[in-house]
Amino acid sequence: MSNAHVMLGLLSRGQQHGYDLKRAHDEQFPAARPLAYGQVYATLQRLEKQGLVEPVTVERVDGPDRTVYALTDAGRTELADWLDSPEPPSPYVSNPLAVKVTLTILAAGEQEAHTYLRRQRAAHLDRMRDYTRTKTEPSSSLPQVLAADYALAHLDADLRWIDTALQRVGALTKEITS
């Protein structure tokens, strides 16, 4: 996923200038890093060169001139193609927690690995409590709730792994120290 595609998506609601796009982005995607205006401007220029967006008018309100952009037909096709194709499911193969468990067993022993996992579990659960609070806050917007849900689901996946690992520390210790 690229910011360029996100810009195309946001422009599908109608022509907008860069500042509006930045604001819409930050509001719709509260979990994403807020866009810098310079980044938006550079992306729009690149998209214009590719023929995916075009400037339609320049707004002169108080302050600087603002170029208003719209999707071109090519831009619309590009957006539709992108939206139609599923993102590659991320395999999350690198697991820093597993690395730490193995190294703790090697450096300190089984009991310490167990203790490490218990602490990690507590730390994960603390984060889950924070996100749960965000979710239940009546003032949270639906995008914020969904972002918290996403974080919670991933933390929960880690936590399930931690629970399984806790039951297997003994067996793992035997295997890697034999």
């Binding site: 659960l125 889950m128 409590r129 749960t132 399930r160």
Partner: peptide
Amino acid sequence: DARVSAYGDREIHLRDGELDPHPA
């Protein structure tokens, strides 16, 4: 379910009928 547990202020964990000491 950890996602349900996270609604609580605090969690205690049972193992074989006994409380696990808090990691802290």
